[in-house]
Amino acid sequence: MIVDGLRGAGNFDIQVISEPSGLARQIQVRDPDVVLIDIANPSRDVLEELTLASGPKERPVAMFTDRSGAGLSAAAVEAGVSAYVVDGLQPARLKPVLDAAIARFRLFQRMRTELAEAKRALEERKVIDRAKGMVMKARGIGEDEAYALLRKAAMDQNKRVAEVAQALVTAAGLLA
């Protein structure tokens, strides 16, 4: 997604390194203007070393996003993107790249959260249905009535229906 976002933002030559081994060498071979790395990636410390390496050409020096605008580096840290820039690239050229990357990253994170949320809801639905079925069978009552019982138990115990249902299913598993 970051790659798509950057493609949309301008004409960049983008290469994705998915293999952490020999990262430093891969970067030196490709000699990029900018390296973007997910901050959650432990290999970020390898880039840190590259920024310190001496020798004129193999020196992707420089900076964290600091000098390209106030607050940008903090935003990048928050969003999980950090940038290392090869000598000579104008900060002005970097900013739109980063802006796009950060925006994409945020979108990606939001989607990830939404997906997890949807999965959880689906899981809970299943448990509630099972618990409902067990109550119906044990008491010989209808679906609506069984659900009403679960809801009442939840309210009495100050819990969520899903929690009561889970407790019932777990207990039934032990007794079976």
């Binding site: 901050i39 959650a40 432990p42 970020r44 410390d45 840190e48 903090a74 840290v77 928050e78």
Partner: peptide, 15 residues
């Protein structure tokens, strides 16, 4: 934290 540079920045930026 996933890396030392991340932890250093988390501290520097107040996270």
């Amino acid at each position: 934290a996933p890396s030392w540079s991340s932890l250093r920045d988390m501290l520097a930026f107040g996270k």
